[in-house]
Design a protein around this nucleic acid. Structure first.
Lengths: 208, 208
DNA sequence: TACCCTCTGTGATATAAGTCACCGTAACTT
DNA sequence: AAGTTACGGTGACTTATATCACAGAGGGTA
């Protein structure tokens, strides 16, 4: 476990790694599992050591709006934020690639903020990055039309998975952008005509 | 100055208040002045002791999308976030009611995080609240149509100014929601017919 | 092979929102 | 009082997006 943490969180000092080993628990999730739901109480701060997690905002009618990916070496900012106040989650986190997660009880997360500099810096850095990320999300939905949002979405997925083949159906993409399948199908068709993508069944090759 | 700080930031301990008095500078801004632009370097963390500040996200074509208000007793989260990394601002802050601001050099802001518990808690709390706030913004633009967004917008303004009379022209509202004046005029007309508002020139009475 | 289910394509139509043109009026200026 | 400007109202039109209906193709399974 020590090596895994060192590799993904190289800035953690040895004291912190020791504390994590002693107190945190490891959990494994399969692709497709939901890690956290809106409205659930949060009992742990989550660090990711392998796999991929997608973070969504949900609405009352069950819409699932995609915001960003979490990668190995990162942490769920919302789990830190809510932890501080024993509050319920306002987001939904779904594992999309088998994942190994380190679960840190919130009392310790709080304690380490005061006692361990490397943890403190990691938490602050996490806040910063996620704040910037959600501001980028706002830019996209506030200022851009669906065709540009779709391009951005495909780029995000290509980069997060490190692979030009985005394995998603039009329906899935539509849900994550909160629009309808037909709209996505038509926009993708246009992108194909412009030479930006190749369309296959449940699978898009990104050429940009 | 000591009293002003105590009133608006009751959780700051005396050591912190003393440090602020010694090291921070006070600045006054008139309504309409821009406090911070996208792309500008941030040299201070900003605390508000009087007046109102509005925070916007800007796009390349000069669009100004309204996100939230800052009130006395609050701080600009983005100024804290950027401060940490000597980065440029990604938001625009406009004073809309004559304001008194405490400017804290970023080196001190950083130092106090480690040395003063009451400051640390205030900063974390600020991150938390603003993060929640931008997530609410995302909900609105991702899931709601313009009529609901307009209602929410009017409610925000009513509450922030503590006054049922929102003194804004249709054009100003349209810009802040990134739409056009005609759309706002028509939606407001419908709201008036439903008895939700009274329309005057450059001024709307909110009845809900 | 026959069947089934999911995925995709597409036409027709509906609705929300954006754009253009123009006008009347309130408020301000001098 | 006359001129000027910002503000708001509205009709006509365009465009983007949403919805409905249906058909054909791909891939799995009995």
């Amino acid at each position: 476990m020590k090596e895994t943490i060192q590799i993904h969180f190289p800035n953690f000092n040895s004291q912190l790694i020791e504390d994590i080993e002693k107190n945190a628990t490891i959990k494994f999730f399969k692709a497709g599992e939901v890690l956290m739901r809106s409205g659930q109480y949060i009992k742990n701060t989550v660090l990711i050591t392998s796999g991929k997690v997608k973070i969504y905002r949900e609405d009352e009618e069950g819409g699932e709006f995609f915001m960003y990916y979490l990668q190995p070496g990162q942490a769920c900012a919302v789990s830190m934020i809510c932890a501080t106040k024993q509050e319920t989650s306002t987001i939904m986190a779904k594992v999309v690639e088998d994942a190994e997660l380190i679960m840190i009880p919130l009392s310790l997360m709080e304690k380490w903020m005061a006692t361990n500099r490397t943890w403190y810096e990691f938490v602050i850095e996490t806040y910063r990055n996620r704040f910037e990320e959600v501001l980028t999300v706002i830019d996209n939905i506030a200022f851009k039309a669906m065709d540009q949002r779709l391009e951005f979405y495909l780029k995000q997925h290509k980069e997060a998975r490190n692979c030009n083949d985005v394995k998603l159906s039009h329906q899935e993409i539509a849900s994550e952008l909160n629009t309808s399948r037909e709209v996505i199908s038509r926009l993708l068709k246009k992108m194909e005509q412009r030479g930006l993508v190749l369309l296959h069944r449940s699978h898009i090759t990104v050429l940009f």
